[in-house]
């Protein structure tokens, strides 16, 4: 089966600096994949290599099963590092020019303008567009070929909160329509809300990959009880010493949340007053920072 995106050992060096190192990236058909990493992690360089704008120092790239060469971007739409168009042309004329490069008929322009809600301002000069309108025009250009694979690099950069919400809605809509979407971002909340699967890059290396749930790790229980010492001792007897941590005056237990009722009964039976017992999920932000820190430290 041809995967929409597949890289093996992808690396890019600029003199003594390695921007991307030995990156294996796989995006499956129909998923919205979040490529997450802090600024300077190597996201844009990776996407530029996928699209042939930057030549890899090592490794291979396949998009929709095709290797580099003429026609490799058939079925692929992209918005890389912000929109860039000709300021003296209108939005419509910019898309007309772009459509000619793509070999797409002018009838497609109205469709994509409608998709990004820019029809009413299509006749205005690009130079007069707000940042949000420019960003939407960039997405419209990426959609001209009605691509099976859409690559969006930081699509919400510079947008106000309403614009960001609109863009997230648009990405979800595009993903729901059966397209494969690869979206890079340094905003955790953004990928968490939009993406099926996430790859975390730090220091040019992929440090983790999986669904949001997988990245958070196994769920657990949070217990607030009195007296704490007695609760700790009893909990360790019940689930094992290595599964109980005392954190901020309470207990974090690495057990399945469906064991809450049993645990509550056991603790109460042992004379412990349970004030609070609830499922505990690891904060993705915490996971992200841990991963990035680990990845950056490994590179250093």
């Amino acid at each position: 089966m041809n995967l929409p995106v597949q890289t093996e050992g992808l690396s890019k060096r600029y003199g003594g600096l390695t921007a991307v190192r030995n990156l294996d990236l796989t995006v499956r058909a129909g998923e919205v994949y979040g490529f997450l990493g802090p600024n300077g992690a190597g996201k844009t360089t990776t996407l530029r290599m996928l699209l042939g704008l930057v030549r890899p120092s090592a490794g291979s790239v396949r998009l929709l099963g095709r290797t580099p060469g003429a026609g490799r971007l058939t079925g692929v739409g992209a918005l890389i590092e912000g929109p860039a168009f000709y300021p003296y042309l209108s939005g419509w004329d910019n898309l007309r020019v772009t459509a000619r490069y793509a070999g797409v008929g002018a009838d497609r322009i109205a469709t994509v303008l409608d998709l990004v809600d820019l029809t009413g301002r299509a006749g205005d000069r690009y130079a007069g567009y707000s940042l949000g309108m420019k960003q939407r025009l960039g997405v419209a250009a990426a959609l001209l070929k009605d691509p099976r694979l859409l690559i969006l690099d930081e699509p919400t950069n510079g947008l106000d909160p309403a614009g960001m919400a609109d863009m997230r809605t648009l990405i979800r809509r595009l993903g729901a329509a059966g397209r494969t979407v690869l979206v890079s971002s340094h905003l955790l909340g953004e990928v968490e809300q939009v993406c099926d699967r996430i790859g975390v890059i730090a220091g040019g290396r992929m440090v983790a990959e999986g669904s949001v749930t997988e990245l958070r790790g196994s769920a657990g229980l949070r217990v607030l009880a009195d007296p704490l010492d007695e609760a700790t001792a009893r909990a360790r007897e019940l689930v094992g010493v290595d599964r109980v941590r005392v954190v901020d005056g309470g207990l974090d237990l690495a057990v399945e949340p469906d064991r809450a009722a049993w645990l509550n009964a056991e603790l109460v039976g042992a004379g412990v007053a349970v004030r609070e017992l609830r499922p505990r999920e690891r904060d993705l932000e915490q996971v992200f920072f841990e991963l990035v820190e680990r990845g950056t430290a490994d590179v250093a």
């Binding site: 699209l51 003429a70 971007l73 739409g77 490069y101 793509a102 070929k145």
Partner: peptide
């Protein structure tokens, strides 16, 4: 040079044509 000044090489090339065609 306008393509460099406006950063539009990426817009053009991601539509599919090769550099030499453009």
């Amino acid at each position: 040079g306008g393509e460099y000044a406006w950063g539009t090489w990426k817009t053009v090339l991601t539509q599919g044509p090769t550099r030499l065609q453009v």
